[in-house]
Design a protein around this nucleic acid. Sequence first.
DNA 1: GAGACGAATGTTATATTGTAACCGCTGAGC
DNA 2: GCTCAGCGGTTACAATATAACATTCGTCTC
Lengths: 148, 148
Amino acid sequence: MPHDSHSKPQTGPALNAAQARALGALQAAGRPLTAYEVLDALREDQPRAAPPTAYRALRRLIDLGLVHRLESLNAYTPCVHEHDAADAGASQATLFAICDDCGNVREITDAPLARRMRQLAEEGAFTPASTIIEMHGRCGGCASEGGA
Amino acid sequence: MPHDSHSKPQTGPALNAAQARALGALQAAGRPLTAYEVLDALREDQPRAAPPTAYRALRRLIDLGLVHRLESLNAYTPCVHEHDAADAGASQATLFAICDDCGNVREITDAPLARRMRQLAEEGAFTPASTIIEMHGRCGGCASEGGA
DNA sequence: GAGACGAATGTTATATTGTAACCGCTGAGC
DNA sequence: GCTCAGCGGTTACAATATAACATTCGTCTC
Ligand SMILES: [Zn+2]
Ligand SMILES: [Zn+2]
Ligand SMILES: [Zn+2]
Ligand SMILES: [Zn+2]
């Protein structure tokens, strides 16, 4: 199979088969997937795929700003924003609200939050390259269901 | 050796030998340690210690608010504040500024940041239980040294 | 077109991080 | 003394991630 690099340069920046499959699996899942769950998805196309294939695809998707890694879960989730790929995390501060009950993840960007983070970094003579903010807790839906 | 639970209830909340050793190692290191590095330290006392010993000690220290886990490094660092143990991360927002050059970690708590995080959670009907904020980048020292 | 080269991907093996499950001691209560 | 619960030790293994090498494929040169 040839690269599909030439097929649609306008839709996205040249995803190969594994990368497209991984992104699709993440978008379809509705919850964060681990690297090995993504690997299972890749194996529907390429039954002999091994861990590095999944990790490479995920790394690429992250570099493109299409996917985020949730450090506190060792899992990956598709981005719902339009990040500036080169700038993921520095000027934007992306907050993930992770429900520990249902697994739902919401991605939030907030300018005041980002401003305050930049200011704190500056006060400490720190030059941020990337930032992760992960809030664990309970989402509204789960709070009203399991009320107690 | 008996538990030292009874020896000094006023200094700290009953650390056993492994816990005290782990905390000492983390404080002496000057940089975050992985669980297996802590395990190596424990083995100076108990040469046959196994991973669960280190993980249990670290879990206990984290529950007591004496140690933090850095999710983005899979590593552990001693707390430099006086956290309310039960409340680690909910009302306080602790930010870690991690230098990717020298490995130095600075722990920062900031009330405006915490306020903004609480507000964002509330707007999204989210009830936070714990929050991690980890900023990667370059500290002032490294920036002036390796200037280029 | 043949051959040399380099980038990307496939493949194997292994490193790192973390936990389940069971065992045995010890101390409290009876 | 006996029982039992809880803690910590121990074994074994699971889950996450990467190093290192082999192969493929496009491209450039001649
Ligand atoms: Zn995003
Ligand atoms: Zn929920
Ligand atoms: Zn702290
Ligand atoms: Zn530094």
